[in-house]
């Protein structure tokens, strides 16, 4: 997994690329989430557009980030979810948990509507 983080309107955008599959990806992503919390940023959009694939361990990484942000009164939403990843979210019913968007502007604006 590779990543790039930036901020837009008080919302952190984490762009992931490569493969999200557990192992060391888990500790890297956890580190990113806690770095944001230290900066008092609780609202996150994770852009999955650059991911070639994800497995259930990778989904666990996203779930862990989501629950951490929710515990801190924040949220973690998904952006640019491919059909392959969508099928995983649907089969596990996690599509009901994660709010997802196809447009970055809409994803960021969704936080100001909350």
């Amino acid at each position: 997994m590779k990543y790039r983080t930036r901020e837009k309107g008080g919302v952190a955008i984490i762009e992931l690329s490569g493969k999200l599959m557990g192992g060391e990806d888990s500790s890297i992503f956890r580190g990113l989430i806690y770095d944001l919390l230290e900066k008092k940023i609780k609202n996150v959009v994770v852009d999955l557009g650059g991911l070639s694939w994800i497995n259930s361990a990778g989904m666990g990484i996203l779930i862990s980030g989501y629950t951490t942000m929710r515990k801190h009164q924040g949220d973690l939403k998904l952006l640019n979810v491919s059909n392959k990843i969508k099928s995983l979210l649907y089969v596990t019913k996690l599509n009901l948990i994660f709010e997802s968007f196809d447009n970055e502007k809409e994803a960021v604006l969704s936080y100001s509507r909350n």
Partner: peptide, 19 residues
């Protein structure tokens, strides 16, 4: 239950069975 967000892992076999 795969939608139980308290569980970070443990969805692999469910996914295989469904797909």
């Amino acid at each position: 239950d795969p939608s139980d967000i308290q569980k970070v892992r443990g969805r692999g076999i469910f996914i295989m069975k469904e797909m």
